[in-house]
Design a protein around this nucleic acid. Structure first.
Lengths: 120, 120
DNA sequence: CGGAATCCGATCTGATACTG
DNA sequence: CAGTATCAGATCGGATTCCG
């Protein structure tokens, strides 16, 4: 608890001012499906239907919305081939890879500890 | 991208089955306010009013709800002293400390990159 | 296949008021 | 100080339908 507390040094009064860009980005990447989509993509470029399978339970609406948000943030790349039937590949940008690298440990921790925690 | 991909090894078809305990816990800890409360508490035990200041913009309703959820998950401890006026201290449990340790790098990454990302 | 559009209920938020 | 209760409005999220 002694190191890497730059968050408190930067903002002594609180963690990120309310409404600042950090808050917005944090909400995007910690959104219900944002985490799962980003981590899915660490496995390499994937298509719409791949992502629907990886992020089990996501609706088409939320997949579309999540991908647009992440693309708008420069975290995800969208590549469309002009063929019929259409083929679209999603992948992480370099920035997205960086982010996913800090997200994976979170997912792993959750996976290890979920059973011991829920319904204490 | 080659190491620590146990998430995909565990669940080849997707990341956590929909509705499993891992998903529930993930939703709790990545909730809009859960992240901020947990990271606030890495700075040591804090009182209700401290947390309201740290997690700028949180309403009393959401602070109460977030704390109850995290307490129910065994991530946060609530200690009430029977004095008047009442004094209540919130702190991380050992499990909560573990979790916060993987959350802090995420917050730091967001803090470093938010300005370059939003509104591309 | 890869979406967009629409509707609808659940959830979140803010404001206000009240309590021990 | 540390909450609880309640209500209205905004937003989120899911299910369904439709389209190139």
């Amino acid at each position: 608890m002694t190191e890497s507390m730059e968050i408190f040094e930067q903002y002594p009064g609180g963690i990120f001012p309310a409404g600042c860009t950090s808050r917005v980005l944090l909400d995007h990447v910690t959104s219900k499906w944002g985490v799962l989509v980003l981590v899915s993509l660490t496995d390499g470029p994937q298509r719409w239907s791949d992502l629907r399978r990886r992020a089990q339970g996501i609706s088409e609406k939320m997949l579309a919305q999540t991908l647009k948000t992440l693309e708008g943030d420069g975290l995800v790349n969208r590549e469309q081939q002009p063929v019929m039937p259409p083929r679209v590949d999603y992948s992480l940008t370099p920035l997205g890879e960086e982010l996913a690298a800090v997200l994976v440990p979170l997912l792993q921790w959750v996976g290890r500890n979920a059973d011991q925690i829920i319904g204490v």
